[in-house]
């Protein structure tokens, strides 16, 4: 049929067109210096803004140096895909591998294989099992959750506070850690969690749950969101109910255009940075490539941004 042939041709053209667009986006080459190092960056899921930020941090740091080139791969939240990405990097003989693994167990093997092939591996954010890697860089969610809890206890200084906790996915370690850290810090104080819900990191869910909390409780002092979008969603709900003035909102992650911007904008009272470690990874990679020995584990420090200090870049948490 003529019609369907036309449709097919049209489709083919548009396919070629789009693939060209994407190809353009990918071939960003840095100019060659004396010795060019190729670094493979295996990201487990670019669907999360925080991980997009991690890649951005890697890129902005890497752009400062002429002698490294980074190849990015996104496993789209698929363990097996990430596994084959690592294997592809190994057979492409990259000079160094940075991996932010989706899961520990299934990726431990491929990482060991890379090490065995003589490729140094930096593991970012989530660990692998054992110690067959060059370096682990990551932050500690329990510590950050605890810091958030301590901040609340301190801020309400003995007056007591009724808290709504909007949790990240409770089947994921970060969600559990941010919950446990917070609870540990408020234990024994008169800060009380009156409503909690698993919003799975998602802002629309947070708004829904907050609306329920608002209709149920007339007295809410603070919302603790396990990430900034959750806190932001809660703020929008409170604002719609005209109660945003009575409630404080705190979140975690502190991405520049999310949490930090929210604090600047007066939406959040505080946000606790969960650093991506992207920039540190490149710095460490350069050291490794230069043949220096590096620490086995680096625990990243976190920063606190509040209304008072956000313009000066926040303060380091102990």
């Amino acid at each position: 049929m003529r019609k369907s042939r036309i449709v097919t041709v049209f489709m083919l053209i548009s396919i070629m067109f789009t693939s060209l667009l994407f190809a353009n986006g990918q071939s960003e080459e840095s100019t060659t210096a004396d010795k060019l190092f190729t670094i493979g960056m295996s990201q487990c899921n670019l669907g999360e803004p925080w991980r997009v930020q991690m890649n951005a941090d890697v890129k902005s740091e890497a752009d400062k140096y002429d002698n490294i080139k980074v190849i990015y791969k996104d496993a789209q939240n698929d363990t097996l895909k990430q596994r084959s990405h690592v294997e592809e990097f190994v057979s492409a003989e990259v000079d160094l591998l940075i991996i932010s693994p989706k899961e520990a167990q299934p990726l431990t093997g491929p990482v060991s294989a890379a090490m065995a092939a003589g490729i140094p591996v930096i593991v970012l954010d989530r660990a692998v099992i054992g110690d067959d890697y060059t370096q682990f860089i990551g932050a500690d969610n329990v510590i950050i959750g605890k810091a958030a809890g301590e901040w609340v206890v301190e801020t309400f200084g003995g007056k007591g506070a009724k808290v709504v906790e909007l949790m990240g996915l409770q089947t994921s370690p970060p969600g559990q850690d941010r919950h446990n850290g917070f609870r540990e810090a408020i234990k024994g104080s008169d800060v009380e969690v009156i409503f909690e819900a698993d919003v799975k990191w998602l802002e629309p869910n947070a708004r829904k749950e907050m609306e329920s909390a608002l209709s149920r409780f007339d007295d809410i002092d603070l919302v603790y969101g396990h990430n900034d979008p959750a806190a932001h969603g809660a703020y929008l709900a409170a604002k719609a109910a005209g109660r945003e003035g009575d409630i404080q909102f705190i979140g975690i992650d502190a991405l520049p255009h999310e949490g930090v911007a929210y604090v600047k904008d007066g939406i959040l009272n505080a946000t606790f940075q969960y650093p991506t470690g992207g920039n540190i990874a490149i710095q460490q990679a350069l050291k490794i490539l230069a043949g220096e020995t590096v620490e086995k584990n680096i625990t990243l420090g976190s920063r606190l941004f509040t209304t008072d200090n956000v313009d000066t870049g926040g303060v380091e948490l102990k």
Partner: peptide, 9 residues
Amino acid sequence: GQKISTYLT
């Protein structure tokens, strides 16, 4: 891949 919000970089 980023959210489009009132905060622009």
